[in-house]
């Protein structure tokens, strides 16, 4: 058992899989000797060498094209797109090529690859290095989407993503890179498509993802102090989506609050809200409430960014207002 940061958990998870399977390779900008701009790949180059941990030029289409071509010919690449905002310059490879080709070829090819990317705000980087793009990925048929919220899940979900025979978008909340937790020694293998109930309460269910999970937990603690007892669910995997767990927990409390970092329109909570209203509408005791970043590009100034991204205070205020209405 060791204290592990979120960023150390990334290299531990990758190393675990690279030791097990020599067809697992890592590519990306500065991921080699430099250890990644967010230090998420420290030690991999030293352990596995330049043929398995390859630095690339600043060529996102080449990075993901190479990953795709390698995946369809027997390898299991883990490609890094440094900031998820940069998906915009290589989205063709992700959406038109990787996501569609298995279906279009009637199942002739598979894409066992992982695309990791630093996602989301909180670091005052401004609008082009801070977006939460999980909703971009979620809406594309053919992509699996995983968003861990802590170091233990990073290791286990990385293993699950690498071992999955389909393409997985693995989004790492940048503002969690330095967060720490105890992680057991030895191999850790989780599974995709499983949400986790982190806290049980009888009054309302808060469903959160990635960097919003620790905020939802903190908010739940504060809400308990004013008599509102909340269940908190970490979604962890948007595709496949664990609707069984979520619907069960929302049914139990009768109230759903989503906590989303993505801008409002077409965020994952919108889909969840739709599923809840179609399938358990008569079990609800009040409206579904979405707590999201407003529909704006993220501002750089700390004062403004803190107003934009859902905060513990906003979660507490929104939930208590709605529960007391």
């Amino acid at each position: 058992m060791a204290q592990l940061t979120f960023r150390e958990a990334i290299s531990r998870g990758i190393a675990q899989e690279m030791r097990r399977d020599e067809t697992v390779l890592a590519i990306g900008e500065d991921i080699g000797a430099a250890g990644g701009v967010f230090k998420g790949t420290v030690g991999l180059f030293e352990e596995f060498g330049p043929l398995r941990v390859r630095d690339t030029p600043i060529s996102e289409q080449a990075i993901l094209g190479a990953a795709m071509g390698a995946a369809m010919t027997g390898l299991k690449p883990i490609a890094e797109i440094m900031f998820s905002d940069f998906f915009a310059v290589c989205w063709d490879i992700v959406v038109n090529q990787i996501a569609k080709s298995r279906y279009m070829t009637n199942g002739q090819v598979s894409f066992p690859l992982v695309i990791r990317s630093g996602n989301g705000g909180g670091l005052r980087f401004g609008a082009q290095h801070s977006q939460s793009v999980e909703n971009w990925a979620m809406m594309v048929p053919g992509l699996k989407v995983v968003v861990p919220s802590n170091a233990l899940d990073v290791v286990g979900l990385m293993a699950a993503a690498v071992r999955d025979p389909d393409p997985v978008i693995f989004l790492e909340a940048k503002c969690l890179y330095s967060s720490k937790m105890e992680v057991p020694d030895g191999d850790i293998v989780d599974s995709l498509g499983r949400a986790k109930v982190l806290r049980s309460g009888g009054d309302a269910t808060l469903v959160a993802l990635g960097a919003m999970v620790p905020k939802a937990l903190k908010a739940a603690e504060e809400l308990a102090g004013v008599g509102i007892d909340c269940t908190v669910i970490d979604v962890r995997s948007l595709v496949p989506l664990d609707t069984v767990t979520i619907l069960r927990e929302v049914t139990a409390t009768g109230r759903l609050f989503t906590v989303e970092e993505n801008p409002r329109l077409c965020g994952w909570g919108g889909e969840l809200s739709s599923i809840v209203s179609e399938e358990i509408f008569y079990d609800l005791d009040g409206p579904v409430v979405r707590i999201t970043t407003p529909h704006i590009p993220l501002p750089a100034a700390d004062a403004l960014e803190d107003m934009a991204i859902p905060s513990v205070e906003r979660i507490v205020a929104t939930v208590s207002t709605s529960m007391n209405a």
């Binding site: 289409q61 080449a62 094209g65 795709m68 071509g69 027997g74």
Partner: peptide, 13 residues
């Protein structure tokens, strides 16, 4: 799009 993908197959080989 397929030029980088061909690079990937070549990398694999």
């Amino acid at each position: 799009a397929h030029l980088p993908i061909a690079c990937g197959a070549a990398w694999s080989a």
